[in-house]
Amino acid sequence: MRTFRHRTAALTAASTAVLALALTACGGDGAATKSAGPAPSDSAAAGDSGRPAEQADTSQGNDAAKDGATAHTTGKTGAAKGSGTGGNGSGAAPACNTKDVAISAAYQDGPPYTHIVLTAKNTSGHRCTLKGYPEIQFLESHRENVPPVAKSKPQLPVVLNPGDPAYALVKLSDGGVDENNEPVTDFSVTLQGGSGQAAVKAPGREGIAVDPAKWATGYWTYELRNGADDF
């Protein structure tokens, strides 16, 4: 009986020693874990701003977007201010006077001569605008101007640079032998919006034959156009 008690006591003492060693080892691991300290916070990773890193990057992106939008708006404003009236600047060209252009007349096609073509050439040293149609007076007995044909009116004003010509088709008669025609060797032309009156020599040795019931004139154009100038 004594021997069993001694063995039991020895086993108990050994078990106690092993348990103490195990607890010591566990206590050492816990101490090592505690000594590492807490993990760095998100605020520390973000820096002095106190914002998370991802939030700081997003804010910087928003600031850049705002700067870009401001620059885009400024560019539009600058473009709007810089925009002006385009085109050839016809509004700045004054109306042509009879001193600015040389006006001549020529037959169109062969006999019977029912039409002539007026040519107005800019002989000045500046640009000018030929407005409307030529105001023509063929006869002293008929002081009214030759009426215009509406379909020949161009969409834009005729602006002539120095040396440039413009044209107007003029109907004299229908070419019938029974018409009440009157001979004309020269006639006058006035330019709308301008000043002065030009004396124009009629083509041909004997001049032209006009019928006040049939005559008509087209508007000034850069060139004669089929359809619009057929009358």
Rank of each mutant, 00 (worst) to 15 (best):
R5N: 10
A9P: 02
L11F: 08
L11V: 08
A20N: 08
D29C: 08
A32P: 06
A32T: 15
P40T: 06
S41E: 09
D48M: 15
R51T: 09
P52R: 11
P52L: 08
A53C: 08
D57W: 06
T58W: 14
A64D: 11
A64F: 08
A71F: 14
G75A: 10
G86Y: 12
N88H: 10
A93Y: 10
A95G: 11
C96T: 04
C96S: 03
T98L: 01
D100H: 12
V101W: 04
A102Q: 13
I103R: 01
Q108M: 07
Q108E: 09
T114F: 03
V117W: 05
K121D: 03
N122E: 02
G125F: 11
L130G: 04
I136C: 00
I136F: 00
Q137P: 00
L139K: 01
H142Q: 04
E144T: 01
K153A: 12
Q155E: 07
G163H: 07
D164V: 11
Y167K: 15
L169C: 03
L169K: 13
V170G: 01
K171I: 02
S173Q: 06
V177D: 06
N181L: 08
N181F: 01
V184H: 00
G194W: 08
A198H: 00
G204Q: 04
A209G: 05
Y219I: 06
Y219F: 15
T221P: 01
T221Q: 10
E223G: 07
L224Y: 07
A228Y: 06
